[in-house]
Design a protein around this nucleic acid. Structure first.
Lengths: 333, 333
DNA sequence: CTATTTCATTGAACCGATTCAGTTGTTATA
DNA sequence: TATAACAACTGAATCGGTTCAATGAAATAG
């Protein structure tokens, strides 16, 4: 069935040790043997068994990536970054989807331990992930993704969500808006609460008060449904900031259906700058996050931790979000 | 560092064989020993090393899934289906992104061989994937995903794209449209060419001719840009069928920007029924594919192939697409 | 011409879980 | 009482690469 290193050794008339050396330290093998063995490897179609290799080595060249929602374009971009960076360094990646459930998260962590992954990149569902500490005892590196650690025992790569919230509000204020609504999801989602803090900071700095409207789920249907509530606020807002683009697009549709003109009557700004934002009915102003780079940075960080060992210093990398201005925002009339 | 089965055996004062039996055939172990060993396993935090287990067994409980584009909502849904079904049967899944490149595809196949996956689910980039045959010799099951096989040596799970094209055109014809434009991508993409065949079939059956407009990339920007070309066709179409929803949303934006009313002046229909379709500026009529079920079915199929061995009969499962009618289509005026 | 170093190669031990022939102890059958 | 049948458990062999002390051969030094 499968060709083993021993088969190659027999066919090439050398010892198993030599074949192993051809694979791992070709420089110490004589040119003539090297060539003969390499030819045999090709002829037999030999592919080394990663299990056996890493069983002996005690560690693998595999990473685990656990995200709360692969369907979210932000995380697919992150995943692409992780994959690209990892495969450049010869690592394979298990992509797991926790669906925001701590249960599924724990289950996947267990699977990844069984698979002997070298490191785990994770966006934990709850704020204080105690169970991750156990991984370090097992010699599995852990890097937090899109979350910041207080503990200094691990690396993290995140985007400054507080600043993102500030940027959005500061921009609206700079345009002259004073009646602003903040449409967000459940406070339990760290991104939501951080962006909310940014909103509060900027509002305080500008000396204005901002109405908060909460949707139970961050999808476009809920965004559309919440428009009625927005339009019946005691003071009609001249600008709306949504916690993500999907919700913002729902709100946009709801407003347009009600005959509200964007941005003339109400300005609208989203978060994430998803690929579809420029092609929305009204091209959407949004806060962009460097999702791909986030993935690349986290993969490189964890791989360096795996390979440098004790020489590795834990780092907390924090990216800055960026305002992308399109047609959905303007001065209030 | 890591706790091995031998450590558990020593601590619990039994042989390694007994500990193994506790894990794999608990019924043949006496109740008292069973309990003692299980307690020890918990105390030591022992997690079996999948490498060693499968090195011995000769096969793993891991699958590989290779898709052309994880960012495409269709494939993320498929992936969710695969993951859910696989993890229900105790299998882990490597998710790989080939980016439509045969090169990357080959590279990932190699990685998956090294990881000793039991089976590979793949949407191959080219129509005739010769290199996949080699996997069968290695004892790795292969199932085609969203592609059909002519060869009877493997399973496949697909959606009838030809029928999908027919359904869309038949529906438009039934509304009374006779001037229809078909906006599609490169002919090299199998989905595009199959849907195109369906369009041609239905057009022939209805005795009408349909203008084909091709975009080089299937994204919404290209969709928006192609609107000029559509509006300058010798005969202005009363309906447009797009090869996927993303392109359709671009076309929708382009039309609305030009002041064209949808569906009064032009009806619009997409393909895939992505989550955002109902929330588009004009809710989009689309052809839905059972993406999640596609994933579940393919995972179950390949796992049964892995476990039944020779008893397994290769199957070609083909799902039917479904028309979802929303506000973007109506009778021509 | 021997002594020492260098270079290429060998082959057995090892990683950790599984498997199975074999051992021990207990209970049912003739 | 002898014997068969069975249950519970043992421990060495095994899977396929990797590693490293040991070996042999050739090159260089004394």
């Amino acid at each position: 069935m499968s060709v083993s290193l021993r088969d190659v050794a027999a066919k090439a008339q050398v010892s198993v040790g030599t074949v192993s050396n051809v694979l791992n330290r070709p420089d110490i093998v004589s040119a003539i043997t090297l060539e003969r063995v390499q030819k045999t490897i090709k002829d037999l179609g030999f592919v080394p068994n990663a299990f056996a290799r890493h069983l002996r080595a005690g560690f693998s060249r595999t990473l685990g990536l656990i995200v709360p929602d692969v369907a979210n374009p932000f995380f697919t971009e992150v995943a692409r970054g992780v994959e690209d960076a990892a495969s450049k360094r010869g690592y394979a990646v298990f992509l797991c989807n926790s669906d925001e459930s701590a249960n599924k998260e724990e289950k996947y962590i267990n699977v990844l331990i069984q698979q002997q992954v070298r490191g785990i990149l994770i966006t934990p569902s709850n704020r204080d992930p105690v169970h991750l500490e156990a991984l370090l005892d097992r010699g599995i590196a852990v890097t937090l993704l899109d979350r910041e650690t207080k503990s200094r025992t691990q690396c993290s790569v995140s985007v400054d969500d507080v600043r993102g919230g500030e940027i959005a509000i500061e921009y609206l204020v700079s345009l002259g808006h004073t009646e602003i609504a903040w449409v967000c999801g459940p406070e339990s989602i760290p991104q939501v609460s951080d962006r909310g803090s940014g909103v509060a900071n900027a509002a305080a700095a500008a000396g204005i008060s901002i109405s908060t409207i909460r949707v139970p789920l961050m999808n476009s249907i809920k965004g559309e449904q919440v428009v009625g509530e927005i339009l019946s606020l005691p003071k009609l807002p001249t600008a709306i900031f949504c916690a993500n683009d999907i919700v913002a697009l729902g709100v946009m549709k709801g407003l347009l259906d009600q005959g509200v003109r964007i941005p003339e009557q109400i300005s609208l700004i989203g978060y994430d700058d998803i690929a579809f934002a420029p092609s929305a009915a009204i091209p959407l102003t949004s806060i962009a996050q460097p999702a791909y780079q986030l993935g690349v940075a986290s993969a490189e960080l964890i791989i360096s931790e795996c390979e440098e060992g004790d020489a590795h210093a834990h780092q907390q990398i924090r990216f800055q979000p960026k305002l992308v201005i399109r047609a959905s925002t303007s001065k209030p009339s």
